[in-house]
Structure formats: structure tokens, C-alpha cells
Design a protein around this nucleic acid. Structure first.
Lengths: 129, 129
DNA sequence: TTAAGTGTATTAGGTGATATAATACACTTA
DNA sequence: TAAGTGTATTATATCACCTAATACACTTAA
């Protein structure tokens, strides 16, 4: 699991998942968490690709998906910027959280574990933030 | 999402994930949930393949992985049987649950959501069992 | 006007996971 | 012996992902 420091971002990349998805998810989560100032300019496609030692097309794919979610805004010739709309950010955060909860609950049900037990399982986990 | 009824099992299969993984997971969860009698004989490789309209090799791959987890026991010339060891079953169930909890907590942390909030999100979800 | 830095598009190729197909072999049971 | 099991092998096809190389369009600042 190689890790890359790029500006304020730390990208842990491995081969267990698609690279574009990891880049995408890392930026998305950083924004949702509020770790990035709204309006911030992301590294250029070529720049990030070079630093992560991956292909520019792969970075572009991640950026385009961020754009589709309106989490970023791309200005041709200028770069790709984090949205300045706080509502969008908090909505995305809600969506991601909801998605995760759904997946978790679904698995618990498949295993025949009830809500109360699931809750207590979570209590047993260390939760350093 | 096509669904196949095979004996006591209902297999919902789609193309979003590998077929062998879906077969594997479905049986694993059914056993963990206690839906299947211990010692039960699974459908033969050829039989299940035909009913699910997939290749025998794909079914075999699923069965072999179940064997590796000791959730099933294969007797050459006889078939593949659910283990009769209750301890193994409950251990697998614990492992799967733990895995799911870890994934959930990890995502929540990545999103900057604290334990209390996460717990309350789960409370908001319908939980028919 | 020009040069450098941006995103974007296109075409080509490589790799690995997944699934299929066809066939053969080995074991168990009736 | 025959039918039903798991197992192994080889070949083929497809798809997602990634890379490579190149060209184009736009923006900004020198």
C-alpha cells in the first residue's frame, strides 16, 4: 500500500480497487469531511498523474466523476476546483453516509443479526477520530 | 436481477458482481443465518450450474471457497455438504459481522461522522427481519 | 502575440479477472 | 457396470481497467 503526499492530500493507493475510484473517493471524502477549503484548486490532471505515478487519463476519469456529482467545477484552461456551494457538500456527505448505512444494515440482515445486536457490535469497536 | 429457486435456496443473480462470489455469499449467509440444516447436501455442481444457467466451473469455484472456509466439506464422488460443526458456523458468522462493522466504521470515520451520529443514522433505517 | 499551463478527445494496446465450452479423469454408490 | 459425484485441463471470449502517445482547445501571463 503505497502512499503519496500531494499538497494537502495524502493518497494511499493500492491495486485492490480501481485507481480512479480510489482517487475519486479520497477527494470526495476529504471534501465531505471538511478537510478542504471550498473553492480550492485541485492539482492539474498532469500534475497529479505524475505525482501518483499513474496515467493522466485515470486522473481525468476521477475528476470527471467529481464534476458529475457537482463536487468540483472544471474551468477549461484553468483547472478543477472544489465547489463553493456548502449545500452540495453536505448533501453529498449525507448521501455517502446513507449509502454506507444501507449497505451495513443489509449485510446485518443477511446474517440474521438484529438491530440491537448490530448497535452493540459497533460499540465494541475502537473509534479514534 | 434474475432470481432462481433451487431447493431451499433462492439465488438472486445479476451482473454487478462476479457470479461465483454471489453464489458463495448466498450460501455462506444462509448457513450463518441458520437457514440451512447442518450436514445438508448442497446441489451437485452440474445440477446447480444448470439451474442457475451458469457454467459448472463457476459453481465449483464457489464450492471450493466454501470448503476453504470449512463451511462445507466435499466428499469425492458423493457431493458437497454443509459442515456439521456448529462452532465453525458461528465463527464464520462472527467474522462476517466483524468485517461488516469494520467497513462501516471505517467509512463513517472517513466521512468525519462520530459514533453517536452513526448510531442514530442506523436507528432511522427500517429494519424488517 | 506567444508560450506555458490548463482540460479534453482519440486511438491503440496490454493485462488480469471472469465466465464459458468441451473433454477427460477419478471416486462412490446402487 | 452405470449413473452420479467432484476435479482437472485447455482453449476461447469478454470486459474493466490502465497505459501510451498525440493532438486539440482554452486561459492566462509574459
Amino acid at each position: 500500500m503505497e502512499s503519496f503526499q500531494v499538497g494537502e492530500f495524502t493518497f494511499p493507493l493500492d491495486l485492490s480497487k480501481p485507481l480512479y475510484e480510489q482517487v475519486l473517493q479520497h477527494i470526495r471524502h476529504a471534501v465531505a469531511r471538511g478537510d478542504v477549503l471550498l473553492g480550492t484548486k485541485l492539482p492539474s490532471v498532469r500534475d497529479l498523474a505524475q505525482q501518483l505515478k499513474i496515467n493522466p487519463n485515470t486522473v481525468m476519469r476521477a475528476y470527471q466523476e467529481l464534476d458529475r456529482d457537482h463536487l468540483t467545477e472544471t474551468r477549461r484552461g484553468q483547472g478543477t476546483f472544489i465547489t463553493s456551494d456548502l449545500n452540495t457538500v453536505s448533501q453529498v456527505k449525507k448521501d455517502l453516509a446513507f449509502e454506507a448505512v444501507q449497505a451495513f444494515v443489509s449485510t446485518m440482515k443477511q446474517l440474521g443479526i438484529d438491530r440491537t445486536t448490530a448497535q452493540s457490535l459497533i460499540k465494541e469497536v475502537e473509534w479514534h477520530e
